[in-house]
Amino acid sequence: MHALEAAIKELIVDALQLEDVRPEDIETNEPLFGDGLGLDSIDALELGVALKKQFGLTLATNDPAIKDHFRSVGTLARLIASQQDAKVCQ
């Protein structure tokens, strides 16, 4: 899980072109949007596309839990891990 979290942090800095932030500066459980890292709604879309490209993440836009999944690096890592586990089971 730690490696996955580190990979997500790196992806966030790269995909969102954060100039003044290093991957290790991002706290695993800090909020990504609003008061935390300060990302906006366009970043949310961009991050969704980047996660899909890199981790094959599938997102249903009508999923009411989507906001919770995108809350932090930790919640995203758990979502990706659960989808990867589900694929292995299939």
């Binding site: 969102l16 366009i42 970043d43 879309l45 961009e46 596309v49 899909k52 490209k53």
Partner: peptide, 10 residues
């Protein structure tokens, strides 16, 4: 066949 970047589109 790539997904377009939402940020770049905006």
């Amino acid at each position: 066949g790539e997904l377009p970047s939402p940020a770049s589109f905006s």
